[in-house]
Design a protein around this nucleic acid. Structure first.
Length: 512
RNA sequence: GUCCCCGUAGCUCAAUCGGAUAGAGCGACAGACUUCUAAUCUGUAGGUUGUGCGUUCGAUUCGCACCGGGGACACCA
């Protein structure tokens, strides 16, 4: 039984019984610890003649549960719940505590992220999707989904032609040292074929290397060109035609996206008979749902693709896959150096790239900095600050907690975990247990709303609770029973900390 | 011109469908190592949440209007 669920169920039942209302109770966590571990403000939202305080008192009277040691009613109508230490200990000692989350219920989810055009090195902006998508996938997996991480390779279309022409020195659409290098290696003289070849090399030797450097592993690299070659794009267009959602205008074939709430219709086949990006993307998403049977698809895009969200969703609705595609938009990244935004990479003469960061910072630090910010905030990545703080950094703070744990366990040697924790009554011990207990709800919430910054925040909170416990409670004491129980708690902390570090893809060093 | 995101402590950012005294880290200041690693802990200072109205018992959160920063408005991908 989870405490939050217990509160929600009991209070909703009480409200139903007392007032005959079907009320959805929202459980919150008070900012001030003295106000309890959980709280509800629902009494304030029930509009009746009675005072909220009275309503809260009546609800409280209905609630009987040994999950809580205390339930308080406070002005103007809050009900505060205090977790019972006995319940807490009992829950943490359960074998399945760390691995029985199942809000995913085995549903298949694909997370597609980065998917930067293979026309150059991975920029910082595109790269932001890397840690984000990777960690989102990890979180969903932990929450009980079957997850695939995918990179969609845009190796078809205008930008490939432009890349080929640049390699062949017929244009300067793409430039930089890497284009010159490709000019020496690519033998094809046809611009499109040269572009394809160049894109392949860029993907394999530049993008994949950077991705790997960030510690990201994909399950699938999916080629847009192959989709076209296999005729999947044509099939999808035919299907939309049969359903009556297409029309011809000025030599082009249009999709009636306005019928699904889009502000304008979208071209699928241009008047020169080439297919648009959207046509390919619709075919790709059909493939995701129909061939690979995903229940849900999450696309992590840059905010510059904001205008394409409705078009894709409209298309998927027309194809019979309504509401199965979630799109997370990541706002831009500005890299700041010496107080000024950096626009260009020194090495390549292109936009600032991920490799520039990797050169100076560990992937742990980069991942953490990126993850700690909400998707919809513009991210100012201050290189100097990141470097300067690299030794006084939240990442190290968390990792240091982990090494302290490992140090204790190593010194303690073999020990048997205790089946009860009744000697642990210190305030810091209880705090630590509460913090560990919250790992489940943190993962559940994140898997539901994709607000990934919760995870690094949780990691900091957990590390802080441990550091405070460490400061006050000597684990390896003379008192054998107490020592064993504390070692058990330390070991539980280790599990939790390791789990969040793994979720974030940040290393867990045993020594520092 | 229309649409989207952002504006919170000196800096980087949080704040759970609107909740209680707006929180962390870094930086500043003052303390704590004979200890399981001080990469830590304890304390202090720091805020009219861009501005102004409004809705509400209650607004950083919702609405309207401004100001400032970024982005999108293709038969490009």
């Amino acid at each position: 039984m989870e405490a939050r669920k217990e509160i929600k169920e009991l209070t909703e039942k009480a409200i139903k019984k007392l007032y005959g209302l079907d009320f959805s109770v929202q459980v919150l966590i008070p900012k001030d610890k003295s106000l309890g571990d959980y709280a509800i403000s629902s009494a304030l939202g029930i509009k009746r003649e009675k005072k909220a305080l009275e309503i809260a008192a009546e609800i409280k009277e209905e609630i009987k549960s040994d999950v809580f040691s205390k339930i308080e009613v406070i002005e103007p109508g809050f009900i505060n719940f205090f977790l019972s230490p006995e319940f807490l200990k009992q829950e943490l000692l359960k074998k399945e505590f760390f691995d029985s989350l199942d809000i995913g219920q085995g549903k298949k989810v694909q997370v597609e992220f980065v998917s930067a055009n293979p026309t150059g090195p991975l920029t910082v902006g595109n790269g932001r999707g890397g840690p984000f998508g990777d960690v989102l996938g990890n979180v969903l997996k932990r929450a009980g989904f079957k997850v695939e991480k995918a990179y969609y390779i845009n190796d078809y279309g205008q930008q490939i032609l432009a890349l080929g022409r640049s390699i062949l020195k017929q244009s300067k659409e793409y430039s930089g040292k890497y284009i010159d290098d490709l000019g020496l290696r690519v033998k094809e003289s046809d611009p499109y074929l040269a572009g394809r070849k160049g894109a392949q090399i860029i993907l394999e030797e530049m993008i994949k290397k950077t991705i790997e450097g960030l510690g990201i592993k994909y399950d699938e690299w999916f080629s847009e060109a192959k989709l076209h070659e296999k005729g999947e794009v044509d099939k999808t267009i035919d299907l939309l035609k049969k359903k009556g959602w297409l029309y011809e205008k000025e030599g082009a074939t249009w999709f009636r996206a306005t019928a699904f709430g889009d502000e304008r219709d979208r071209v699928l086949i241009k008047s020169n008979k080439e297919k648009t990006y959207l046509a390919g993307d619709l075919a790709y998403h059909r493939y995701k749902f129909e061939k690979k049977k995903f229940d849900k698809v999450i696309n992590v895009w840059g905010a510059d693709h904001y205008g394409d969200v409705v078009g894709l969703k409209a298309g998927m609705e027309a194809l019979g896959h309504k509401d199965k595609t979630d799109i997370v938009l990541l706002q831009f990244v500005t890299v700041i150096k010496e107080g000024k935004p950096v626009k260009m990479s020194k090495r390549l003469g292109t936009a600032i790239i991920m490799d520039d960061l990797l050169e100076e910072l560990s992937p742990d630090v980069i991942r953490f900095f990126f993850l700690a910010k909400a998707a919809n905030t513009h991210l100012n990545f201050d290189m100097d600050l990141a470097k300067e703080q690299s030794e006084k950094n939240p990442v190290y703070y968390i990792q240091y907690a982990y090494t302290r744990i490992c140090g204790i366990l190593k010194k303690a040697g073999q020990f048997k975990k205790t089946g009860n924790l009744d000697l642990l009554i210190n305030e810091k011990e209880i705090e630590l247990m509460k913090q560990i207990y919250r790992i489940r709800e943190t993962i559940e919430d994140t898997a539901t709303d994709y607000q990934l910054q919760r995870i690094p925040q949780y990691a900091i909170d957990l590390a802080a609770s441990f550091h405070r416990f460490y400061q006050e409670c000597q684990v390896l004491t003379e008192k054998e029973d107490l020592k064993k129980q504390r070692l058990t708690l330390v070991s539980l902390t280790k599990n939790a900390l390791k789990q969040v570090l793994d979720l974030m893809g940040v290393s867990a060093p045993e020594e520092m």
